[in-house]
């Protein structure tokens, strides 16, 4: 008997969402990288994370790379773009945290504007720990960056009305819906956001992330189920590109933060941290992520190489 390759039929397709001027996410009608089954859509995108404040809390080996530019977000962004060519920059307003600098939304808007004017790639705006504060920050930043098609990471169950109304409706930007590792929660939030009047091709989703080894099986399984529902059951509420803030998770786990004095047997801290970041990024890409956010230049290089080899 001759070999017969199994055929997998899909009935759905992930929305194609344009970020900034022309960065396209999604558009696939098959499982991630299943080019033997059909159209894999746009290449997953890679963003680099920068902060509005100097990243004191980052491991020294990481700070070292950005230390000359990290006290100025615009400089930092351009340093990354010039040297590592990410598809987008994720500007995270850590300084807005009420437990920290408690930077005002107006000040954040000012900074965002300056960064936006100086860069050639789209921005993804991220907030701090406080969802309440983020709603206020996002409103002001979205106003300052009106109609830019930038992504705001993210709207959650407790603030989606405010974030959606400002970011998505009033100021023409893209809302990222963030839920906590659960298909039904993700679906529900997507529905609520579209009910505000936001078009499905004007949103992305973050279904929840963690680092490999830290409950990561739940992340992969949630993403698998979301993609299977979107593609095989044609569930339109889940046909939304997924963006995963990998670096938010991987740089705080022990494998990345333990210094060489703390764990001499483990060898180079920088390599360990890069390894955690790469493996987590590929892990979510294999489960359907359309964009990942990273910190280390080496991770950017390797993950890009991985994506290129899988898609070309």
């Amino acid at each position: 008997m001759a070999y017969k390759m199994p055929v997998q039929k899909y009935s759905g397709k992930i929305n194609e969402v344009t970020i900034g001027n022309g960065l396209k996410l999604g558009g696939e009608s098959v499982l991630p990288f299943y080019s033997f089954d059909g159209d894999i859509g746009n290449k997953p995108a890679i963003g680099m994370e920068i902060w509005d404040i100097y990243p004191e809390s980052w491991p020294k080996c990481l700070q070292e790379i950005f230390k000359d530019v990290a006290d100025d977000p615009a400089k930092w962004a351009n340093f990354c773009i010039y040297n590592y060519s990410p598809d987008f920059i994720c500007l995270k307003f850590e300084g807005a945290s009420p437990d920290g600098l408690d930077r005002s939304p107006e000040e954040c808007a000012e900074i965002a504007k300056k960064v936006a004017e100086s860069v050639s790639v789209p921005l993804v705006i991220a907030g701090c720990q406080s969802n309440e504060k983020n709603a206020k920050v996002f409103t002001k930043v979205a106003e300052a960056l009106a109609d830019k098609n930038f992504v705001f990471l993210s709207a959650v169950e407790s603030n989606y009305k405010e974030v959606g109304a400002a970011v998505g409706m009033a100021y023409g930007n893209i809302v990222a819906a963030e839920s906590s590792v659960d298909l039904n929660l993700a679906k529900q939030l997507n529905i609520l956001i579209t009910q505000l009047g936001i078009k499905p091709d004007r949103m992305v989703m973050d279904p929840g992330c963690s680092a490999v080894g830290y409950g990561f099986e739940y992340v992969v399984t949630t993403m698998d189920r979301i993609r299977l529902a979107a593609l095989q059951q044609n569930d339109t509420t889940l046909q939304v590109p997924m963006i995963l803030p990998v670096s938010f998770e991987t740089w705080k786990v022990k494998e990345s933060v333990a210094t060489e004095d703390d764990a001499p047997e483990w060898g180079s801290q920088e390599e360990r941290a890069v390894g955690m970041e790469i493996s987590t990024a590929v892990g979510v890409l294999g489960a359907g992520a359309n964009a990942v956010i990273l910190r280390h230049p080496r991770s950017v290089e390797v993950v890009r190489n991985f994506i290129n080899q899988m898609t070309e």
Binding site: V212, G213, Y214, G215, F216, E217, V220, T221, E255, E265, W266, G267, S268, E271, R272, V274, G275, M276, I278, S279, T280, G283
Partner: peptide, 20 residues
């Protein structure tokens, strides 16, 4: 092999092969 690739790989494997 070294720890920089073993730590993520073994941890990932342990997660993925956990019985849900």
């Amino acid at each position: 092999i070294d720890y920089s690739i073993a730590l993520p790989l073994f941890a990932l494997r342990q997660n993925i092969f956990t019985d849900p």
